[in-house]
Design a protein around this nucleic acid. Structure first.
Lengths: 113, 113
DNA sequence: GTAACTACTTACTCAAAGGTAACTACTATA
DNA sequence: TATAGTAGTTACCTTTGAGTAAGTAGTTAC
């Protein structure tokens, strides 16, 4: 395998890493919701109106595993849990901007023509 | 629903549009392969070593439907088919760059620690 | 004591995504 | 006549993603 091919293979690998983090129906909505400030479980659920508690719980765990968000438990009564973006999560801002930018462009070119 | 909420809902919609185009195991690899020049079916298959002809055919059709790539048939013997990025496909460059950039960052922070 | 709020979990089901293997149709070459 | 190269297609199966509905556990207010 040539050096150029190796670089290509690495590009494919890295692109898949990113996709794995943002893939699925709910992860981008959750991340976007948290870019507007720290939120509790119920608040995110109200933000994303059609998500079930099962999916929200599952996807929050996945994002936490990937260190995109952090979970903070407050010992208030009743117990509240706050979710926030980690420093790594905050580095997604430019990526999110491009996803939104290109989505607008795509919508103009395809969906509205 | 407040105006702020409506803006948010629109952001979610647009983000999902983008995701729908790049989602799945094979679309980013195909697009990235075509950023290195126009390619034939067999060339893409050799680029992405583990893709089956069924998946390649299926995903090429999906990308063509979304006007990301174009299919050109040459009446040579034997028949050859060339795939290329459309102008819309070329507008994905900045998005692809961010996907690759963030993937490198993510790999540094998580996978290699 | 019962309803409501916090934040989930569990079991079951269905649909979409993806993989494997074989097959098609045409042409060129040995 | 058989093999290889062009570009796919088809049928079948398995895996993964996502939805529904109900249940859990603790606290507070009525």
């Amino acid at each position: 395998m040539s050096q150029k091919d190796e670089v290509c293979q690495h590009r494919l690998l890295v692109a898949r890493d990113t996709l794995e983090v943002i893939q699925g129906k709910w992860r981008l909505p959750i991340i976007i919701s948290l870019t507007h400030g720290n939120k509790r479980f119920g608040e995110i659920q109200r933000d994303i109106s059609d998500i079930s508690p099962k999916m929200l719980s599952q996807e929050l765990k996945a994002l936490e595993t990937n260190k995109i968000i952090a979970r903070t438990l407050y010992d208030s009564m009743p117990v509240t849990v706050e979710y926030s973006l980690t420093p790594l999560g905050l580095t997604m801002k430019k990526l999110l901007d491009e996803i939104l930018n290109w989505g607008v462009l795509f919508r103009k070119e395809i969906l509205e023509k």
